[in-house]
Design a protein around this nucleic acid. Sequence first.
DNA 1: ACTTTGGAAACATGAAAAGTTTCCATGCGT
DNA 2: ACGCATGGAAACTTTTCATGTTTCCAAAGT
Lengths: 204, 204
Amino acid sequence: METKERIMKEALTLFFKRGVKAVSMDDVAAHLGVSKKTIYKWFVNKDELVFESIQEYVQAMEQTCCGTIEGANNALEALFQILEMVRGLMREVHPSIFYDLQKYHAKAWQLWLDHKNGFFLQQTKENIQRGIEEKLFRQDVDVEIVSRLRLAEVELGFNSEVYPVAQFDLQQVQIALLEHFLFGIATIKGHKLINQYKQITEEE
Amino acid sequence: METKERIMKEALTLFFKRGVKAVSMDDVAAHLGVSKKTIYKWFVNKDELVFESIQEYVQAMEQTCCGTIEGANNALEALFQILEMVRGLMREVHPSIFYDLQKYHAKAWQLWLDHKNGFFLQQTKENIQRGIEEKLFRQDVDVEIVSRLRLAEVELGFNSEVYPVAQFDLQQVQIALLEHFLFGIATIKGHKLINQYKQITEEE
DNA sequence: ACTTTGGAAACATGAAAAGTTTCCATGCGT
DNA sequence: ACGCATGGAAACTTTTCATGTTTCCAAAGT
Protein backbone atom coordinates (compact mmCIF):
# COMPACT_ATOMS: atom_id res chain seq x y z
CA MET A 1 0.00 0.00 0.00
CA GLU A 2 1.16 3.52 -0.73
CA THR A 3 2.63 5.37 2.26
CA LYS A 4 0.20 8.26 2.01
CA GLU A 5 -2.73 5.88 2.14
CA ARG A 6 -1.31 4.08 5.15
CA ILE A 7 -0.90 7.36 6.97
CA MET A 8 -4.45 8.44 6.24
CA LYS A 9 -5.85 5.08 7.23
CA GLU A 10 -4.02 5.01 10.54
CA ALA A 11 -4.88 8.65 11.26
CA LEU A 12 -8.52 7.98 10.53
CA THR A 13 -8.54 4.96 12.82
CA LEU A 14 -7.10 7.05 15.63
CA PHE A 15 -9.42 9.98 14.98
CA PHE A 16 -12.46 7.74 15.12
CA LYS A 17 -11.31 5.96 18.23
CA ARG A 18 -10.16 8.98 20.26
CA GLY A 19 -11.42 12.10 18.52
CA VAL A 20 -9.35 14.50 16.43
CA LYS A 21 -8.09 16.93 19.07
CA ALA A 22 -6.90 14.11 21.30
CA VAL A 23 -4.64 12.69 18.59
CA SER A 24 -1.33 14.50 18.05
CA MET A 25 0.93 14.17 15.06
CA ASP A 26 3.39 12.45 17.40
CA ASP A 27 0.72 9.86 18.13
CA VAL A 28 0.09 9.13 14.49
CA ALA A 29 3.80 8.87 13.78
CA ALA A 30 4.37 6.59 16.76
CA HIS A 31 1.53 4.30 15.75
CA LEU A 32 2.95 3.98 12.26
CA GLY A 33 6.47 3.46 13.57
CA VAL A 34 7.75 6.37 11.48
CA SER A 35 9.03 9.83 12.31
CA LYS A 36 6.88 12.95 11.95
CA LYS A 37 9.14 13.90 9.06
CA THR A 38 7.60 11.16 6.97
CA ILE A 39 4.10 12.44 7.62
CA TYR A 40 5.06 16.00 6.78
CA LYS A 41 6.58 14.73 3.57
CA TRP A 42 3.06 13.85 2.42
CA PHE A 43 0.91 16.39 4.23
CA VAL A 44 1.58 20.09 4.57
CA ASN A 45 0.05 20.19 8.07
CA LYS A 46 -2.36 18.47 10.41
CA ASP A 47 -5.31 20.36 9.00
CA GLU A 48 -4.60 18.83 5.62
CA LEU A 49 -4.11 15.36 7.03
CA VAL A 50 -7.46 15.65 8.74
CA PHE A 51 -9.09 17.08 5.63
CA GLU A 52 -7.75 14.47 3.25
CA SER A 53 -8.48 11.59 5.59
CA ILE A 54 -12.05 12.69 6.08
CA GLN A 55 -12.42 13.35 2.37
CA GLU A 56 -11.20 9.88 1.53
CA TYR A 57 -13.58 8.46 4.08
CA VAL A 58 -16.60 10.43 2.96
CA GLN A 59 -15.97 9.59 -0.66
CA ALA A 60 -15.64 5.89 0.07
CA MET A 61 -18.84 6.22 2.08
CA GLU A 62 -20.66 7.80 -0.84
CA GLN A 63 -19.50 5.03 -3.15
CA THR A 64 -20.74 2.38 -0.77
CA CYS A 65 -24.02 4.18 -0.27
CA CYS A 66 -24.61 4.52 -4.00
CA GLY A 67 -23.83 0.87 -4.53
CA THR A 68 -26.06 -0.18 -1.67
CA ILE A 69 -29.00 1.90 -2.78
CA GLU A 70 -28.74 0.89 -6.42
CA GLY A 71 -28.33 -2.75 -5.50
CA ALA A 72 -31.34 -2.79 -3.22
CA ASN A 73 -34.61 -4.23 -4.46
CA ASN A 74 -36.60 -1.40 -2.91
CA ALA A 75 -36.21 1.79 -0.85
CA LEU A 76 -36.81 -0.03 2.38
CA GLU A 77 -34.21 -2.67 1.75
CA ALA A 78 -31.78 0.13 0.93
CA LEU A 79 -32.31 1.75 4.33
CA PHE A 80 -32.05 -1.64 5.95
CA GLN A 81 -28.68 -2.24 4.40
CA ILE A 82 -27.56 1.23 5.47
CA LEU A 83 -28.56 0.14 8.95
CA GLU A 84 -26.28 -2.86 8.71
CA MET A 85 -23.52 -0.56 7.52
CA VAL A 86 -24.05 1.76 10.46
CA ARG A 87 -23.85 -1.19 12.79
CA GLY A 88 -20.39 -1.93 11.46
CA LEU A 89 -19.18 1.67 11.42
CA MET A 90 -20.28 2.58 14.90
CA ARG A 91 -18.53 -0.29 16.56
CA GLU A 92 -15.91 1.94 18.17
CA VAL A 93 -16.29 5.63 17.50
CA HIS A 94 -15.49 8.44 19.87
CA PRO A 95 -18.42 10.88 20.01
CA SER A 96 -16.15 13.95 20.09
CA ILE A 97 -15.08 13.54 16.48
CA PHE A 98 -17.94 15.71 15.16
CA TYR A 99 -17.34 18.36 17.79
CA ASP A 100 -13.61 18.44 17.14
CA LEU A 101 -13.98 18.82 13.40
CA GLN A 102 -16.48 21.62 13.83
CA LYS A 103 -14.28 23.44 16.32
CA TYR A 104 -10.74 22.97 15.06
CA HIS A 105 -10.87 21.96 11.43
CA ALA A 106 -13.11 24.35 9.58
CA LYS A 107 -12.16 23.00 6.16
CA ALA A 108 -12.89 19.39 7.03
CA TRP A 109 -16.11 20.39 8.77
CA GLN A 110 -17.20 22.33 5.73
CA LEU A 111 -16.48 19.25 3.66
CA TRP A 112 -18.81 17.23 5.87
CA LEU A 113 -21.47 19.94 5.76
CA ASP A 114 -21.24 20.12 1.99
CA HIS A 115 -21.61 16.38 1.60
CA LYS A 116 -24.35 16.22 4.20
CA ASN A 117 -26.42 19.01 2.66
CA GLY A 118 -25.48 17.93 -0.84
CA PHE A 119 -25.04 14.26 -1.54
CA PHE A 120 -26.55 12.73 1.57
CA LEU A 121 -29.59 15.01 1.64
CA GLN A 122 -30.19 14.39 -2.05
CA GLN A 123 -29.77 10.66 -1.65
CA THR A 124 -32.07 10.57 1.34
CA LYS A 125 -34.75 12.57 -0.42
CA GLU A 126 -34.55 10.41 -3.53
CA ASN A 127 -34.74 7.20 -1.54
CA ILE A 128 -37.77 8.42 0.41
CA GLN A 129 -39.36 9.49 -2.87
CA ARG A 130 -38.65 6.06 -4.30
CA GLY A 131 -40.19 4.42 -1.27
CA ILE A 132 -43.30 6.52 -1.64
CA GLU A 133 -43.66 5.45 -5.25
CA GLU A 134 -43.20 1.85 -4.19
CA LYS A 135 -46.00 2.35 -1.64
CA LEU A 136 -43.61 1.36 1.12
CA PHE A 137 -43.41 4.88 2.56
CA ARG A 138 -46.45 7.03 3.34
CA GLN A 139 -47.59 9.48 0.70
CA ASP A 140 -48.14 12.24 3.21
CA VAL A 141 -44.63 12.42 4.66
CA ASP A 142 -43.07 15.81 4.10
CA VAL A 143 -39.91 14.73 2.29
CA GLU A 144 -38.04 18.01 2.87
CA ILE A 145 -38.68 18.06 6.61
CA VAL A 146 -38.21 14.39 7.27
CA SER A 147 -35.01 13.97 5.28
CA ARG A 148 -33.43 16.81 7.24
CA LEU A 149 -34.59 15.06 10.39
CA ARG A 150 -32.71 11.95 9.33
CA LEU A 151 -29.46 13.87 8.84
CA ALA A 152 -29.91 15.65 12.17
CA GLU A 153 -30.49 12.31 13.88
CA VAL A 154 -27.05 11.12 12.87
CA GLU A 155 -25.45 14.06 14.65
CA LEU A 156 -27.90 13.78 17.52
CA GLY A 157 -26.61 10.30 18.23
CA PHE A 158 -23.16 11.81 18.73
CA ASN A 159 -24.47 14.43 21.14
CA SER A 160 -23.37 13.36 24.59
CA GLU A 161 -25.66 15.89 26.26
CA VAL A 162 -28.62 13.92 24.96
CA TYR A 163 -27.05 10.47 25.05
CA PRO A 164 -24.32 10.51 27.73
CA VAL A 165 -21.49 8.14 26.96
CA ALA A 166 -21.81 6.65 30.43
CA GLN A 167 -25.42 5.59 29.88
CA PHE A 168 -25.71 4.92 26.15
CA ASP A 169 -23.83 2.95 23.55
CA LEU A 170 -23.31 4.97 20.37
CA GLN A 171 -23.93 1.98 18.14
CA GLN A 172 -27.20 1.10 19.87
CA VAL A 173 -28.37 4.70 19.73
CA GLN A 174 -27.64 5.10 16.04
CA ILE A 175 -29.42 1.87 15.21
CA ALA A 176 -32.44 2.68 17.35
CA LEU A 177 -32.72 6.11 15.72
CA LEU A 178 -32.46 4.76 12.20
CA GLU A 179 -34.95 2.00 12.91
CA HIS A 180 -37.40 4.44 14.45
CA PHE A 181 -36.97 6.69 11.45
CA LEU A 182 -37.73 3.82 9.12
CA PHE A 183 -40.96 2.92 10.90
CA GLY A 184 -41.81 6.61 11.00
CA ILE A 185 -42.09 6.91 7.25
CA ALA A 186 -43.36 3.41 6.46
CA THR A 187 -46.85 2.52 5.25
CA ILE A 188 -48.52 -0.53 6.72
CA LYS A 189 -47.24 -2.45 3.75
CA GLY A 190 -43.76 -1.11 4.47
CA HIS A 191 -44.13 -1.90 8.16
CA LYS A 192 -44.95 -5.51 7.35
CA LEU A 193 -41.96 -5.74 5.08
CA ILE A 194 -39.69 -4.42 7.84
CA ASN A 195 -41.05 -7.08 10.18
CA GLN A 196 -40.22 -9.63 7.54
CA TYR A 197 -36.64 -8.38 7.29
CA LYS A 198 -36.40 -8.30 11.06
CA GLN A 199 -38.07 -11.73 11.19
CA ILE A 200 -40.69 -10.48 13.57
CA THR A 201 -44.28 -11.62 13.67
CA GLU A 202 -46.70 -9.00 14.85
CA GLU A 203 -50.36 -9.44 15.57
CA GLU A 204 -52.61 -7.01 13.78
CA MET B 1 -56.29 41.38 36.10
CA GLU B 2 -53.43 41.97 38.47
CA THR B 3 -50.68 44.21 37.13
CA LYS B 4 -47.94 41.62 37.60
CA GLU B 5 -49.88 39.09 35.58
CA ARG B 6 -50.51 41.58 32.80
CA ILE B 7 -46.82 42.35 32.60
CA MET B 8 -45.84 38.68 32.44
CA LYS B 9 -48.46 37.94 29.83
CA GLU B 10 -47.43 40.82 27.58
CA ALA B 11 -43.74 40.04 28.04
CA LEU B 12 -44.35 36.40 27.14
CA THR B 13 -46.28 37.39 24.04
CA LEU B 14 -43.42 39.61 22.90
CA PHE B 15 -40.75 37.02 23.75
CA PHE B 16 -42.55 34.38 21.73
CA LYS B 17 -43.13 36.66 18.79
CA ARG B 18 -39.68 38.27 18.58
CA GLY B 19 -37.34 36.28 20.80
CA VAL B 20 -36.04 37.32 24.21
CA LYS B 21 -32.91 39.27 23.31
CA ALA B 22 -34.76 41.35 20.75
CA VAL B 23 -37.27 42.58 23.33
CA SER B 24 -36.03 45.35 25.63
CA MET B 25 -37.61 46.43 28.88
CA ASP B 26 -38.50 49.67 27.08
CA ASP B 27 -40.41 47.60 24.52
CA VAL B 28 -42.40 45.77 27.15
CA ALA B 29 -43.17 49.02 28.95
CA ALA B 30 -44.21 50.73 25.73
CA HIS B 31 -46.49 47.85 24.75
CA LEU B 32 -48.19 47.99 28.13
CA GLY B 33 -48.41 51.77 28.04
CA VAL B 34 -46.57 52.04 31.34
CA SER B 35 -43.11 53.26 32.31
CA LYS B 36 -40.22 50.97 33.14
CA LYS B 37 -40.66 52.09 36.73
CA THR B 38 -43.86 50.07 37.00
CA ILE B 39 -42.20 46.94 35.68
CA TYR B 40 -39.27 47.30 38.05
CA LYS B 41 -41.75 47.68 40.88
CA TRP B 42 -42.80 44.09 40.31
CA PHE B 43 -39.62 42.51 38.99
CA VAL B 44 -36.11 43.03 40.30
CA ASN B 45 -34.63 42.79 36.79
CA LYS B 46 -35.20 41.42 33.31
CA ASP B 47 -33.75 38.05 34.20
CA GLU B 48 -36.47 37.64 36.80
CA LEU B 49 -39.19 38.82 34.46
CA VAL B 50 -38.02 36.26 31.93
CA PHE B 51 -37.74 33.54 34.55
CA GLU B 52 -41.15 34.13 36.10
CA SER B 53 -42.89 34.44 32.74
CA ILE B 54 -41.38 31.21 31.49
CA GLN B 55 -42.11 29.48 34.77
CA GLU B 56 -45.74 30.51 34.61
CA TYR B 57 -45.90 29.26 31.05
CA VAL B 58 -44.19 25.93 31.67
CA GLN B 59 -46.38 25.23 34.68
CA ALA B 60 -49.56 25.96 32.76
CA MET B 61 -48.19 23.70 30.03
CA GLU B 62 -47.63 20.85 32.47
CA GLN B 63 -51.14 21.19 33.81
CA THR B 64 -52.57 21.04 30.32
CA CYS B 65 -50.37 18.08 29.41
CA CYS B 66 -51.38 16.13 32.50
CA GLY B 67 -55.03 16.77 31.86
CA THR B 68 -54.70 15.81 28.22
CA ILE B 69 -52.85 12.58 28.90
CA GLU B 70 -55.16 11.50 31.70
CA GLY B 71 -58.24 12.35 29.70
CA ALA B 72 -57.11 10.37 26.66
CA ASN B 73 -58.53 6.92 25.99
CA ASN B 74 -55.15 5.53 25.02
CA ALA B 75 -51.50 6.54 24.62
CA LEU B 76 -51.94 7.24 20.95
CA GLU B 77 -54.89 9.53 21.43
CA ALA B 78 -52.86 11.39 24.06
CA LEU B 79 -50.08 12.09 21.59
CA PHE B 80 -52.64 13.06 19.00
CA GLN B 81 -54.11 15.65 21.32
CA ILE B 82 -50.63 16.96 22.12
CA LEU B 83 -50.26 17.38 18.38
CA GLU B 84 -53.35 19.55 18.26
CA MET B 85 -51.96 21.57 21.15
CA VAL B 86 -48.67 22.08 19.34
CA ARG B 87 -50.58 23.26 16.30
CA GLY B 88 -52.10 26.02 18.41
CA LEU B 89 -48.92 26.97 20.26
CA MET B 90 -46.69 27.21 17.21
CA ARG B 91 -48.90 29.59 15.33
CA GLU B 92 -46.54 32.53 15.74
CA VAL B 93 -43.32 31.76 17.54
CA HIS B 94 -39.91 33.22 16.81
CA PRO B 95 -37.34 30.40 16.58
CA SER B 96 -34.68 32.34 18.46
CA ILE B 97 -36.47 32.07 21.79
CA PHE B 98 -34.71 28.82 22.73
CA TYR B 99 -31.34 30.15 21.68
CA ASP B 100 -31.82 33.39 23.60
CA LEU B 101 -32.82 31.65 26.81
CA GLN B 102 -29.87 29.32 26.60
CA LYS B 103 -27.44 32.14 25.91
CA TYR B 104 -28.66 35.01 28.08
CA HIS B 105 -30.93 33.67 30.76
CA ALA B 106 -29.22 30.77 32.46
CA LYS B 107 -31.82 30.50 35.22
CA ALA B 108 -34.78 30.34 32.86
CA TRP B 109 -32.90 27.92 30.60
CA GLN B 110 -32.12 25.70 33.55
CA LEU B 111 -35.81 25.78 34.41
CA TRP B 112 -36.65 24.53 30.95
CA LEU B 113 -33.92 21.88 31.11
CA ASP B 114 -35.18 20.70 34.49
CA HIS B 115 -38.73 20.40 33.27
CA LYS B 116 -37.61 18.83 30.02
CA ASN B 117 -35.39 16.20 31.64
CA GLY B 118 -37.77 15.83 34.56
CA PHE B 119 -41.45 16.13 33.92
CA PHE B 120 -41.55 15.96 30.14
CA LEU B 121 -39.10 13.07 29.85
CA GLN B 122 -40.94 11.15 32.55
CA GLN B 123 -44.30 11.86 30.95
CA THR B 124 -43.02 10.83 27.54
CA LYS B 125 -41.53 7.61 28.83
CA GLU B 126 -44.69 6.72 30.73
CA ASN B 127 -46.88 7.41 27.76
CA ILE B 128 -44.74 5.28 25.47
CA GLN B 129 -44.75 2.53 28.09
CA ARG B 130 -48.52 2.78 28.28
CA GLY B 131 -48.77 2.57 24.50
CA ILE B 132 -46.62 -0.54 24.49
CA GLU B 133 -48.90 -2.19 27.04
CA GLU B 134 -51.90 -1.21 24.93
CA LYS B 135 -50.17 -2.89 21.95
CA LEU B 136 -50.34 0.41 20.08
CA PHE B 137 -46.58 0.99 20.25
CA ARG B 138 -44.00 -1.61 19.30
CA GLN B 139 -42.56 -3.76 22.05
CA ASP B 140 -39.03 -3.43 20.75
CA VAL B 141 -38.73 0.36 20.84
CA ASP B 142 -35.97 1.46 23.16
CA VAL B 143 -37.96 3.74 25.46
CA GLU B 144 -34.93 5.57 26.86
CA ILE B 145 -33.45 6.37 23.47
CA VAL B 146 -36.66 7.21 21.70
CA SER B 147 -38.13 9.44 24.40
CA ARG B 148 -34.94 11.51 24.37
CA LEU B 149 -35.28 11.69 20.61
CA ARG B 150 -38.75 13.19 21.02
CA LEU B 151 -37.50 15.92 23.34
CA ALA B 152 -34.59 16.68 21.02
CA GLU B 153 -36.98 16.93 18.09
CA VAL B 154 -38.83 19.79 19.74
CA GLU B 155 -35.63 21.81 19.92
CA LEU B 156 -34.56 20.62 16.49
CA GLY B 157 -37.66 22.23 15.02
CA PHE B 158 -36.43 25.55 16.41
CA ASN B 159 -32.99 25.14 14.88
CA SER B 160 -32.83 27.48 11.93
CA GLU B 161 -29.64 25.88 10.63
CA VAL B 162 -31.63 22.74 9.93
CA TYR B 163 -34.95 24.38 9.11
CA PRO B 164 -34.21 27.91 7.83
CA VAL B 165 -36.97 30.37 8.62
CA ALA B 166 -37.07 31.44 4.98
CA GLN B 167 -37.87 27.93 3.76
CA PHE B 168 -39.82 26.30 6.57
CA ASP B 169 -42.81 27.14 8.71
CA LEU B 170 -42.18 26.34 12.37
CA GLN B 171 -45.70 25.06 12.91
CA GLN B 172 -45.53 22.71 9.94
CA VAL B 173 -42.12 21.42 10.99
CA GLN B 174 -43.18 20.69 14.55
CA ILE B 175 -46.27 18.86 13.39
CA ALA B 176 -44.43 16.84 10.78
CA LEU B 177 -41.82 15.83 13.37
CA LEU B 178 -44.38 14.80 15.95
CA GLU B 179 -46.41 12.86 13.40
CA HIS B 180 -43.33 11.07 12.12
CA PHE B 181 -42.38 10.23 15.68
CA LEU B 182 -45.80 8.77 16.32
CA PHE B 183 -45.65 6.47 13.29
CA GLY B 184 -42.09 5.62 14.29
CA ILE B 185 -43.14 3.90 17.49
CA ALA B 186 -46.53 2.54 16.38
CA THR B 187 -47.41 -1.10 15.84
CA ILE B 188 -49.52 -1.98 12.82
CA LYS B 189 -52.52 -1.84 15.10
CA GLY B 190 -51.41 1.60 16.25
CA HIS B 191 -50.73 2.68 12.69
CA LYS B 192 -54.26 1.75 11.70
CA LEU B 193 -55.65 3.68 14.62
CA ILE B 194 -53.67 6.76 13.60
CA ASN B 195 -55.13 6.49 10.11
CA GLN B 196 -58.54 6.35 11.70
CA TYR B 197 -57.86 9.53 13.67
CA LYS B 198 -56.47 11.17 10.56
CA GLN B 199 -59.39 9.78 8.56
CA ILE B 200 -57.08 8.21 6.06
CA THR B 201 -57.70 4.97 4.26
CA GLU B 202 -54.60 3.08 3.32
CA GLU B 203 -54.33 -0.02 1.23
CA GLU B 204 -52.44 -2.86 2.86
C1' DA C 1 16.07 19.03 20.23
C1' DC C 2 14.57 23.37 18.78
C1' DT C 3 11.46 27.09 16.82
C1' DT C 4 7.01 28.44 15.41
C1' DT C 5 2.19 28.48 15.51
C1' DG C 6 -2.58 28.44 16.85
C1' DG C 7 -5.96 28.39 20.16
C1' DA C 8 -7.54 29.17 25.18
C1' DA C 9 -7.80 32.49 28.52
C1' DA C 10 -7.28 36.91 30.38
C1' DC C 11 -7.79 41.48 29.42
C1' DA C 12 -9.50 46.02 26.80
C1' DT C 13 -13.17 48.70 24.30
C1' DG C 14 -17.51 50.61 22.92
C1' DA C 15 -22.32 50.53 22.02
C1' DA C 16 -26.76 49.20 23.53
C1' DA C 17 -29.72 47.96 26.81
C1' DA C 18 -30.44 47.37 31.77
C1' DG C 19 -31.51 49.68 35.63
C1' DT C 20 -31.99 54.44 38.54
C1' DT C 21 -33.22 58.90 39.55
C1' DT C 22 -35.50 63.20 38.90
C1' DC C 23 -39.25 65.91 37.88
C1' DC C 24 -43.80 66.76 37.04
C1' DA C 25 -48.92 65.87 36.07
C1' DT C 26 -52.71 63.62 37.86
C1' DG C 27 -55.91 61.92 41.16
C1' DC C 28 -57.41 61.38 45.82
C1' DG C 29 -58.47 62.17 50.71
C1' DT C 30 -59.07 65.66 54.04
C1' DA D 1 -57.95 74.16 47.91
C1' DC D 2 -53.96 71.85 49.76
C1' DG D 3 -50.73 68.26 50.66
C1' DC D 4 -49.46 63.75 49.35
C1' DA D 5 -49.02 59.40 46.93
C1' DT D 6 -48.70 57.44 42.34
C1' DG D 7 -46.76 56.54 38.10
C1' DG D 8 -45.29 58.36 33.43
C1' DA D 9 -41.56 60.67 30.68
C1' DA D 10 -37.11 61.24 30.10
C1' DA D 11 -32.47 62.14 31.55
C1' DC D 12 -29.07 59.74 33.64
C1' DT D 13 -25.70 55.94 35.34
C1' DT D 14 -24.31 51.21 35.28
C1' DT D 15 -23.98 46.74 33.36
C1' DT D 16 -23.75 43.55 29.79
C1' DC D 17 -22.21 41.64 25.65
C1' DA D 18 -19.95 41.55 21.11
C1' DT D 19 -15.67 42.54 19.33
C1' DG D 20 -10.90 42.89 19.29
C1' DT D 21 -6.21 42.52 21.42
C1' DT D 22 -2.52 40.41 24.13
C1' DT D 23 -0.34 36.73 26.49
C1' DC D 24 1.01 32.12 27.15
C1' DC D 25 1.50 27.23 26.47
C1' DA D 26 1.01 22.87 24.25
C1' DA D 27 1.45 20.90 20.17
C1' DA D 28 2.63 21.67 15.35
C1' DG D 29 6.16 21.80 12.45
C1' DT D 30 11.54 21.91 11.25
